[in-house]
């Protein structure tokens, strides 16, 4: 999910013996820790994947943060604030884990703002409606959980541990989203319409979060071997659909896919074709909110420069005394 846009990392000329020993550790489900020997390609792939994951959490604060000041009740306001604060915290956990691989937060921020590093496609969609808070919690966090639970067993220690921490907090996120959808679906006609509309807009982008089929991706195969990816994109997407369809039915909401049908033989839902061109456009920077999201992050960074500088200078002055 966070490997979108990754190319195969350049491998170094590493001794076959070391590579073999490394792979043997992975195969034994041993954890690789920060100063352990690792192939350069492993390090680079992890840096890209983890930093993109962290960027996703941070950028993800924006579409939801958009509704904090307009949440309809005190309770919803508190829950949304807590949730978005959690996302920021998750970003921090993962940035911190990524820094153990030898990259700085400053460098990662540069990569995000320049567009070199990507973040999850879903956050490039707007949230014009309160019901989107429900849809995001239910579908987007739901999809994220599918991806994150297996990553708790990723081969890189700091990443796995950050994932464990995150997963503990994430299920609250999905449940609060579904809770919002439930209130709306069982509310007035206008509220029900709001909920259905949000589902209509977020369903396909949520499916795209898992990334294109990686049947032919050598990159995916290598990541699987190194246990920094544990299931294929298609497997996770299918699992998500199978879990979510009954949840929608339970609320009397209709998933916007005419081809969605239970397949008795496979024991899974068949579903319609995903518009991968839309996904490619969004990843390339041509989605509805790409410019807006990055501009917000750039502004926060720029506007905050004097504050960061003040904090550093204050500390330097105090140290001199």
């Amino acid at each position: 999910m966070y490997s979108q846009g990754l190319k195969d990392a350049e491998g170094g000329q590493e001794p076959a013996g070391l590579l073999k020993a490394f792979q043997a550790r992975i195969d034994k489900e041993e954890k690789i820790e920060p100063r352990d020997w690792m192939p350069e390609a492993y390090r680079q792939t992890l840096i890209r994947q983890m930093s993109q994951h962290a960027h996703s959490e941070i950028v993800g604060q924006l579409p939801e943060g958009n509704w904090i000041t307009r949440a309809p009740t005190l309770k919803r306001k508190m829950i949304l604030l807590a949730k978005v604060q959690d996302e920021a915290g998750h970003g921090l956990y993962i940035y911190s884990a990524t820094e153990t691989l030898g990259i700085t937060r400053t460098k990662m921020t540069e990569q995000l703002l320049s567009g070199e590093a990507k973040y999850s496609s879903i956050f490039n969609y707007p949230t014009p409606s309160w019901a989107d808070m429900g849809a995001i919690g239910w579908l987007v966090d739901g999809a994220a959980i599918m991806n994150q639970v297996p990553l708790c067993r990723a081969s890189y220690g700091p990443y796995a541990r950050a994932m464990v921490r995150i997963c503990k907090e994430e299920s609250f996120h999905q449940r609060q989203g579904y809770d919002i959808m439930t209130s709306l679906a069982r509310g007035s006609a206008a509220q029900k319409k709001m909920a259905q509309d949000a589902l209509n807009r977020f369903w396909w982008p949520a499916l795209m979060m898992f990334g294109p089929s990686d049947k032919d991706s050598t990159h995916s195969a290598q990541s699987m071997k190194w246990k920094i990816k544990r299931f294929s994109n298609d497997e996770l997407r299918q699992k998500f659909i199978d879990a979510t369809v009954p949840q929608a039915e339970h609320l009397g909401l209709t998933i916007p896919d005419e081809d969605l049908k239970w397949n008795e033989d496979t024991g899974h839902y068949d579903f319609g074709d995903i518009d991968w061109q839309e996904f490619i456009n969004v990843i390339k920077g041509y989605g509805p909110c790409n410019k807006e999201r990055l501009r917000a992050r750039q502004n926060a960074h720029d506007d905050g420069a004097w504050v960061r500088e003040a904090a550093e200078v204050y500390q330097q002055k105090k140290a001199q005394l």
């Binding site: 943060g65 604060q85 921090l92 502004n299 926060a300 420069a305």
Partner: peptide
Amino acid sequence: AEWCGHGPFLEEDIALTNVALDLLG
């Protein structure tokens, strides 16, 4: 709460929203 996502750095973003949440409580 208006600072959420716009703080001068990540740690302070979290700190400000923390205070907002407490006050809301």
